[in-house]
């Protein structure tokens, strides 16, 4: 993967993101992936003068993750999206859609958490 990858933990993620902001980095987006049983991997992508930096956070899905939307306002949409797709809670979201940003309120299955298998057609 292009760019530098820095590992962060639940405790220092907000601080590291704050450091990035003070450094003048732009938040591109987050990426999520399944990091084993009950774990979610989140990559925070940053960009400054076309140079990429990524923060990697691996966290338990059942514990809330501190939100960085207080630091970068633009993180609110992507954090709500992760809430929809993985059912991971974020602490301190500035605007919490509570799993209804993309999904309807009556949807109970979490699409990306690999509990919902799509089979072939018919």
């Amino acid at each position: 993967m292009k760019g530098k990858v820095i590992d962060v933990t639940l405790d220092n993620v907000v601080g590291e993101v704050m450091n990035m902001k003070n450094d003048g980095q732009r938040l591109v987006s987050f990426s999520t992936y399944n990091a084993g049983e009950g774990k979610i991997g989140i990559l925070y992508h940053f960009d400054k003068a076309l140079e990429n930096t990524h923060l990697r956070l691996v966290a338990d899905m059942d514990k809330p993750i501190p939100s960085v939307s207080g630091v970068y306002f633009s993180a609110l949409l992507v954090e709500n999206e992760i809430r929809d797709q993985w059912d991971v809670k974020f602490d301190g979201l500035v605007l919490d859609f509570n799993r209804t940003l993309l999904l309807d309120p009556e949807v109970t299955k979490v699409p990306l958490a690999n509990n919902l298998k799509i089979g072939p057609k018919n």
Partner: peptide, 10 residues
């Protein structure tokens, strides 16, 4: 995993 972040999202 395939993650797409489109420009309008940003």
């Amino acid at each position: 995993r395939l993650r797409i972040r489109t420009p309008t999202f940003a």
